[in-house]
Design a protein around this nucleic acid. Structure first.
Lengths: 342, 342
DNA sequence: TTGTAGGCGTTATCAG
DNA sequence: CTGATAACGCCTACAA
């Protein structure tokens, strides 16, 4: 493979000039640039990114830490991140953790090892380095694109899960529902907790008492939504609506209802969260909260670019909150009069 | 940041020994290794991957080129690729192309530029370098994880879309359907063509005449499945079953049918393709063909690792074909007797 | 506007 | 088993 020296020789200039022609063309005479470009085309030269990176101490990669990418919710974030990265000559290194904290820690050390310049977190876990900060100024650039404890001083982008969840419950209450169940996500995630507390807030605003028996826990998967709905149904408590912590569980729940012969929305209203594309084509189409997932990814990557530009990553971190909005479709409706369930 | 020289000094050895201790510990006396490890822990040393890469002329990255990752089908592949990459100390660089051939070509030149060691293709397009091969031995390592023209000499992994599609149609015919429609993918993709020709093969085997009027074209999206079904319905042709080229379109089609008051499977059987998780929870649960998407990704990455080990990438390329299987759920059933549609 | 030269941090070769 | 040292290819003062 040709290198910068070869180009210099063929173009009859020094390597410095070639390097400048490539990175700061304004400093080089146009005629010289032309000769250099001809040589580059001739020799099929491609700058060695490893060598440049070693010299400049940066890899132009960001790691995205995500438990799994095999679901529409997280892959939307990643798509947004990649969009912005690509537009800024950076690359996205996929860091799948499978929820393992040790794997996550490896991603932070990859930054020290110059395999990447920063880390975007889409994970319930936090790397050790956040809890045990190293010497000042040694903190790797990090951005959080999901819910974390509020006292955490990290640039972050998110939506207001708390409010959004209350919004859904408000919608259900407005329709006239008095007994509104919830299917939550795994409670070791801040996002799930936020959505659950939003559910409680929604009840409070509607002056409906919270009833522990109406809360079932899932893990955000279709199957867990199905299972949670079956448990709710079998428990014998009365309810006419259910607010699910994401669309997948809502669709799982609808599947369970259909199997039990309970009609949505006539006998049961179901609401989701996230606005996956599948929800619009569910049967019936799913009422949900739109979360701008791709945009969150884009904003996260922009925050990362900012961090990379800044000298130190100390000081109060920026927080970007993106708007959600309720999307009412046909899976929610007013409850039937005096409906009783076995 | 500490470097190998610092470690060498603190441990009282030469840099060569440190390097060996890290990469080939068997060549170093255990006691020496211990001293080195102590120094590494002391100084919080992390090997500089850029420097190592420059020296060894490899980045330990693979690019995966994919039109978009924001859908369950492609993200499953990528998940599989990452799984195997991670287990082999390699990283996945996300290369989203948005279907743009120029972006794809950039990914091939990134290999020349040592940003990555190889390219895994999950794209309908082929990079120019495949069609205009450079000098012998200069071909970057590539693996195809999707359908391409059969004469293409690239290591590849796939399923038999042709047979699988015929299998679905066979299932429908066996149920007694005589008028089986098809909703295809975009016909500029080999995969769509394969699935379409499999549909024709299935008809042939069932001794059913092919009818152009029963074929509607989509683009693999939910919306396009919905639209295609509406077109089919509005065209006035008679049919009692539809084989869709993927699950998303099948679910879009079911949504259209529901809206038109046509019952699945009583009035219309619907079959999908891919076995997305959503299909199992669709209403009714979707009959489909299981494609081992994650496994295909894993196999593709293994093929890539093999390519990287081999000196030259010439000679006949390996092909791995993974098995599919029909999954019969409730969206398909025998047609109603003497059913007529307006 | 251009050239010279000293690293960036490793690995690998060659001696010992 | 260990050490000295020459690359790997580029960038960037500093000089001209």
């Amino acid at each position: 493979m040709a290198n910068i020296k070869d180009i210099a020789r063929v173009a009859g200039v020094s390597v410095a000039t070639v390097s400048r022609a490539l990175s700061t063309p304004s400093l080089v005479r146009p005629a010289t640039i032309e000769r250099i470009e001809a040589a580059i085309a001739d020799l099929n030269y491609e700058p060695n990114h490893l060598a440049a990176g070693l010299r400049r101490q940066r890899s132009d990669n960001v790691i995205v830490a995500v438990p799994s990418i095999y679901n529409p919710f997280t892959s939307a974030f990643v798509e947004g991140i990649e969009n912005v990265a690509r537009a800024n000559r950076m690359r996205v290194l996929l860091g799948i953790t499978e929820g393992d904290p040790e794997t996550l820690n490896k991603y932070t050390s990859m930054i020290a090892g110059k395999q990447a310049d920063g880390l975007i977190l889409l994970e319930k876990n936090l790397p050790d380095i956040v809890l045990n900060p190293p010497a000042k100024g040694k903190m790797p650039p990090m951005v959080a694109a999901c819910e974390y404890p509020p006292d955490l001083n990290l640039p972050r982008v998110r939506t207001d899960n708390h409010e959004a969840s209350a919004l859904v419950v408000g919608h259900l209450a407005e329709l006239g529902h008095k007994h509104i169940a919830a299917i939550t996500g795994p409670l070791d995630q801040f996002m799930s907790m936020d959505r659950l507390s939003g559910y409680k807030l929604g009840l409070l605003r509607a002056r409906i008492d919270f009833d522990e028996a109406l809360v079932a826990h899932g893990d955000f998967s279709l199957q867990s939504g199905y299972d949670a709905m079956i448990r709710l149904l079998d428990s014998g408590v009365e309810f006419t609506a259910v607010a699910c912590a994401n669309d997948e569980m809502a669709m799982g729940a609808m599947s369970a209802l259909q199997q039990r012969g309970i009609s949505v929305p006539d006998d049961m209203s179901v609401a989701g969260f996230d606005d996956l594309r599948f929800g619009a084509f569910a049967i019936p189409p799913l009422t949900t909260v739109h979360i701008p997932t791709v945009e969150i990814g884009e904003a996260a990557m922009r925050l990362m670019l900012d961090s990379l530009l800044l000298q130190d990553h100390e000081g109060p971190a920026r927080e970007v909150v993106l708007p959600h909005r309720l999307i009412v479709r046909q899976s929610t409706a007013a409850p039937r009069k005096r409906r009783k369930k076995a």
